[in-house]
């Protein structure tokens, strides 16, 4: 590895390190009390002190996020294929979908609680509701933007709708799908955490809420750091899957 490559590989770490260094120094220099802004070391200390709590909360959040995300994936791909494979369907459902997408999903949490009570179900459903729209929209776009000439070639071979969808539509939608997964998993995560803050008895969101209401500010920040790290982790996983599966979409090169 030459110097330039090394520098490129290191740059995200250096940026992050710099960010925390500035934060730490600022806390020390201005003597900011822990109850307002704990330094990174304080936060990490709190994290270590309370690790069993944080770990189980993270697991709970990861669980609700992944379950919600998985449902979103299945529903999003199925509906996306349905909407994308016919112009009439696209026209008919578009306004409804846009309207649905404009409703802030947090606003639906109280309704979900009303229906399902406090627990992981509202969090899972919120994750699902926030995540499924970008998946649906992207899959539909990928399928609907099939070149008309290619559609002609296939139709003139007597291809049925289902065959076109399987052989061309879905593979064509894959890069769109994977691009949306990165967005969707982050959204699912945000949805989970928010729902947990409103209507749960576990998870990072719940931990955030209880810690802040008892003024354990370092613990709040420790939880926030964990949220950030988990977010990055999920993004990276989605990105890895994307790169492996659709090399052709980036013409053999990598993407970020």
């Amino acid at each position: 590895m030459n110097r330039r490559k090394l520098r490129q590989a290191m740059s995200p770490w250096i940026t992050a390190g710099g960010f925390f260094a500035v934060w730490e120094v600022a806390c020390l220099a201005f003597d900011i009390p822990q109850s307002i802004l704990p330094s990174p070391t304080d936060s990490v200390k709190a994290g270590i002190e309370f690790w069993p709590v944080i770990l189980s909360a993270s697991m709970q959040t990861l669980y609700t996020t992944l379950v919600g995300f998985f449902i979103a994936l299945v529903v999003g791909v199925a509906l996306g294929a349905l909407v994308g494979s016919s112009q009439a369907m696209y026209r008919a459902t578009n306004p409804l979908l846009i309207g649905f997408n404009s409703v802030p999903k947090v606003a639906m949490v109280p309704v979900l609680v009303m229906w399902f009570g406090i627990g992981s179900v509202p969090a899972i459903l919120t994750a699902f509701l926030t995540a499924f729209f970008p998946i649906l929209a992207n899959v539909a776009t990928g399928i609907a933007t099939l070149e008309p000439e290619l559609a002609d070639v296939l139709r003139s071979l007597g291809a049925k709708r289902g065959v076109i969808l399987r052989k061309v539509g879905l593979p064509r939608a894959l890069p769109y799908l994977f691009a949306s997964l990165k967005v969707a998993i982050s959204l699912a995560f945000v949805g989970s955490v928010i729902a947990e803050m409103v209507a749960s008895d576990g998870g990072i969101g719940y931990l955030l809420l209880t810690a802040s209401s008892s003024f354990r500010v370092p613990l709040v920040f420790a939880a926030l750091l964990v949220v950030g790290v988990l977010g990055i982790l999920m993004y990276v996983i989605a990105d890895l899957i994307e790169r492996r599966s659709t090399r052709w979409a980036t013409r053999g090169g990598g993407s970020l």
């Binding site: 070149e147 290619l150 003139s156 071979l157 291809a159 052989k167 061309v168 659709t246 979409a249």
Partner: peptide, 25 residues
């Protein structure tokens, strides 16, 4: 049929692109 735009499927090799009609017709 062939058009100005080759409309090949980028995720298939040339061979698999050529074989596509046989998988359909």
């Amino acid at each position: 049929m062939a058009f100005q735009n080759p409309t090949l499927l980028p995720w298939r090799t040339s061979l698999d692109n050529v074989l596509l009609p046989l998988e359909i017709v």
